[in-house]
């Protein structure tokens, strides 16, 4: 199944990327505003703007530009930034690690908070403990990440002075320092997803706890902790895996606000700068990378389903082969 799976996924990836790149290219180029004029600003004369347009290749028709751009990507050339003439591929390669680290750290924090809370809530479902956790989670889900970011900055950086309000310390300066500089933004990005994960996992766990095999485990004399970890957890992971895939995929292109607030040199902040500077080539490159990541992550999630529950792997094969499942 794996070879077929990979080929199908790759075809899907190509299709998605074609659509995404076309839509992205179209919408940016149909927007009012012109990169050359944006770069030159007030001082630009019609002649200098025209000259710059020619230099940047903006004078050729849109369709032609799209084809050229696409052709370049197939050879690994994402074009050069209109603003500073740096290769877009270099910009992305330089900034992607920051965003990836931020997302990984934030989602690890989210899972570390959500999994124990979901388990406790599911075991104590219907009690005051469950309701208490639910209210907490509801609070976390209703506070937007940027509001939380402001609160964190105000408390930890301004009031307590424990923390630089912004700035990214690269890994080369030490892992501890590096993680420290990402801690507040990670917390801000973790709260919402943690709430989502807790709700999804709690619901799946509660359903699993209602199943007969959990009664059987209890009648076997299995301890409550072992029941939660060894019996209930794995069959309850499908919703959590799906949510995790979607959240991580979305965050790659949308950590803009948090990256800006904390002055992190990631993909999100360059996306924001490039949009306002009409630096379309960079925007297109970042969007394409984010879309690719989204599709790849969700393909990985599909593979993970099969690892979590081997029955799903079998079911998919049976369905595709058109065979009747044996009773």
């Amino acid at each position: 199944m794996t070879a077929r799976f990979v080929v199908l996924r790759l075809l899907r990836l190509v299709a998605v990327l074609l659509v995404v790149s076309a839509l992205c290219f179209l919408s940016l180029n149909l927007l009012p505003g012109d990169p050359a004029r944006a770069i030159l600003g007030e001082s630009g004369t019609p002649e200098s703007v025209a000259a710059l347009q020619q230099e940047l290749g903006l004078d050729v028709p849109m369709g032609e530009r799209y084809i050229t751009w696409l052709g370049g990507i197939l050879q690994g050339d994402f074009g050069r930034s209109y603003a500073n003439r740096l290769p877009v591929a270099d910009i992305i390669l330089q900034r992607a690690p920051v965003t990836i680290e931020l997302i990984l750290l934030s989602q690890l924090i989210a899972l570390a908070v959500a999994i124990p809370l979901a388990t406790v809530a599911a075991v104590k479902r219907g009690t005051a403990v469950d309701r208490g956790i639910s209210s907490l989670v509801f609070l976390a889900v209703s506070v937007p990440s940027f509001v939380l970011a402001f609160v964190l900055i105000w408390v930890f950086a301004i009031k307590l002075g424990l923390y630089p309000a912004n700035g990214f310390i690269p890994i080369s300066a030490g892992l501890g320092q590096n993680l420290g500089s990402l801690l507040l933004p990670s917390l801000a990005l973790a709260a919402g997803p943690a709430a989502l994960y807790q709700r999804v996992l709690r619901a799946d766990l509660a359903e699993t706890y209602g199943q007969e095999f959990m009664n059987v485990a209890r009648a076997k004399g299995v301890s409550p902790l072992r029941m939660a970890v060894r019996h209930a957890f794995r069959p309850s992971l499908l919703g959590l895996t799906t949510s995790l895939g979607v959240v991580v995929g979305v965050l790659i292109g949308s950590s803009v606000i948090i990256e800006n607030l904390f002055s992190l040199p990631g993909l999100g902040s360059i996306l924001a700068t490039s949009v306002s500077g009409r630096d379309y080539v960079v925007v297109q490159g970042v969007v394409l990378v984010a879309a690719t990541a989204f599709v790849v992550i969700n393909a990985v999630v599909d593979l993970v389903y099969g690892l979590i529950d081997p029955r799903l792997r079998k079911a998919r094969v049976t369905r595709r082969a058109g065979a009747v499942p044996v009773a």
């Binding site: 007969e212 095999f213 009664n215 059987v216 009648a219 076997k220 019996h231 794995r234 529950d309 081997p310």
Partner: peptide, 16 residues
């Protein structure tokens, strides 16, 4: 003391 349950499919763990 132990128990055998009615429906063996739902009584056995689906993954283990």
């Amino acid at each position: 003391v132990a128990m055998v349950f009615q429906d063996p499919l739902s009584a056995l763990h689906p993954i283990t």
